[in-house]
Amino acid sequence: MSGLVKAAAARVAPAMRTGIITQRASLYTRPAKEKLGTAETAIGLGMFSLAILGPSGWILAHLEEYKKKE
């Protein structure tokens, strides 16, 4: 068992000695080419709400059916 621990420590030790690894994302953002309108914003928020709340609403609406053991 100690041989396995020594082998694992020998592989991990160099990585631990190098210090903190920094990661940089190459992400560039700009303002949108066209502004979103009120209707587009409302449709987008409505779809997100439906996607998140729809399944839980379905389950709660059919809870009595799920309770029945047939």
Rank of each mutant, 00 (worst) to 15 (best):
P14I: 01
A13E: 04
A8I: 11
I52A: 07
K35P: 11
L53D: 09
Y66T: 04
S26A: 14
P14W: 00
L27Y: 11
I21P: 02
I59F: 07
Q23C: 10
I20Y: 08
V12L: 09
E65K: 09
W58N: 13
G46M: 06
F48W: 11
P55E: 01
G46V: 02
A32N: 09
S49M: 14
A15H: 13
L60N: 05
A8G: 02
Y66G: 06
G19E: 02
T29H: 07
Y28E: 06
R24A: 08
L27Q: 12
E65R: 07
A25E: 13
A42W: 08
E70Q: 03
E64P: 02
M16S: 06
P55D: 02
L60S: 06
T41F: 06
A51Q: 04
A15S: 12
G44K: 09
T38W: 12
A61M: 07
A9K: 15
T41H: 05
E40F: 00
R30H: 15
H62V: 02
L36E: 00
L4T: 08
M47K: 11
T38G: 05
I59E: 06
G54C: 03
S49V: 10
G54I: 02
G3L: 15
V12N: 01
S49K: 08
L4D: 13
V12K: 03
L50S: 10
E70F: 09
R30E: 10
W58M: 15
K33P: 06
A51F: 12
K35S: 10
H62N: 14
L63N: 08
K68F: 07
E64F: 08
Y28A: 06
G54S: 03
E64I: 12
R17T: 08
T41M: 13
Y28M: 03
F48A: 13
L4Y: 05
E70G: 05
A39D: 01
E34G: 03
V5E: 08
L45S: 04
G19K: 01
A10K: 14
T38I: 11
L60M: 07
T29M: 08
L27T: 12
S2P: 05
S2G: 12
K35L: 12
T22E: 11
E64M: 07
Y28P: 01
H62R: 07
I20V: 15
G3C: 06
I43R: 10
I59V: 14
Q23P: 02
V12F: 03
P14R: 00
T38F: 09
G57N: 11
S49N: 06
P31D: 04
S56H: 07
T22K: 11
A7Q: 11
M1P: 08
G44T: 15
I20Q: 13
F48I: 13
R17D: 07
V5A: 13
